[in-house]
């Protein structure tokens, strides 16, 4: 009984101090009213989060009742806080719905563009077939201790740049086809350069070229989660850097495949 009295005494103190902050409560109530008014007639918000709008209104009514009759500032602030939160949650849910609907539309647009691009690439490929020999395509598959590796040679890039030439279409399409036939396999795309030039710039160029190949695969419908990218610069040369021919061989992008179950060997 004694402890109960003591507790009520403590509450009295709290209630008294509550009276002192009634201005804060009025302010918070006003903010909550403004927020509720902002969403009450918004059909989008009502559609996405009807329950939260209703709760916001209900808690606001309670806050108003406490403030106009005999309630403490503590109660007013509490229900104004809840009302404010419900309003904010309703607004966020409505934004989320709008974003998701927009994303669904963009997703369709992306798929449409992917198909168009693939058709366009196949078309140019058929036109080029008579003109370009296999040596231009420069597709090498090797079965080393790193697993299956496909090398995309320097000739498929614009010199000194990261952009792929149209002649890379065949390689890229083959890669896409392979990845679609083996949906569990993942790839690591590694860029390399020769030893001429600045080391840091070489790493950046090799990274950018590897990223370009990754982007090309994603553009044709491969899930970006299956692709990792690494720029290794002038490390791990496959030929000596003394001759122009050797340097050209070192400038390359290698696509390393995981095994059939998606297990990838260690990165270099």
């Amino acid at each position: 009984m004694n402890s109960l009295q003591g507790m009520c005494g403590a509450l009295l103190v709290a209630a008294l101090s509550g009276c002192a902050t009634s201005q804060d409560a009025a302010q918070q109530l006003q903010n909550a009213q403004a927020s509720f008014e902002g969403i009450r007639d918004n059909t989008e918000v009502l559609r996405s989060a009807p329950k939260d709008v209703i709760r916001s209104g209900e808690t606001l009514v309670r806050a108003e009742r406490f403030s106009s009759y005999l309630g403490s500032s503590e109660d007013v602030m509490h229900y104004a806080y809840l009302s404010q939160r419900y309003s904010d949650i309703a607004k966020q849910k409505s934004l989320l719905t709008a974003n998701n609907e927009r994303a669904a539309k963009l997703e369709l647009e992306r798929q449409r563009l992917q198909l168009t691009l693939r058709e366009a690439k196949l078309l140019t490929l058929q036109e080029q077939n008579g003109l370009l020999g296999e040596q231009m395509v420069n597709l090498v598959t090797t079965d080393t201790e790193r697993g299956l590796v496909i090398t995309i040679g320097d000739v498929l890039f614009d010199a000194g740049h990261a952009d792929l030439k149209a002649s890379a279409n065949r390689t890229v399409l083959k890669l896409v086809q392979f990845l679609q036939l083996h949906p569990l396999r993942v790839v690591r795309i590694e860029g390399y350069t020769d030893s001429s030039g600045d080391t840091q710039q070489n790493i950046e160029l090799s990274q950018a070229r590897a990223q370009t190949v990754a982007d090309a695969l994603v553009d044709l419908g491969i899930d970006s989660k299956r692709i990792s990218v690494q720029g290794l610069g002038e490390s791990f040369p496959v030929a000596e850097n003394a001759s122009a021919k050797g340097r050209a061989q070192n400038r390359r992008v290698e696509v390393v495949f995981s095994d059939e179950q998606g297990r990838m060997g260690a990165a270099r």
Binding site: L106, E109, R110, L113, D219
Partner: peptide
């Protein structure tokens, strides 16, 4: 999260459009 997704989609679509222009 939804905003990150929208950005990613817009980026991919822009890239596809650029590539399609280059194909023509």
């Amino acid at each position: 999260q939804s905003e990150v997704r929208l950005q990613e989609l817009n980026k991919q679509i822009n890239r596809l459009r650029t590539q399609l222009r280059a194909q023509q």
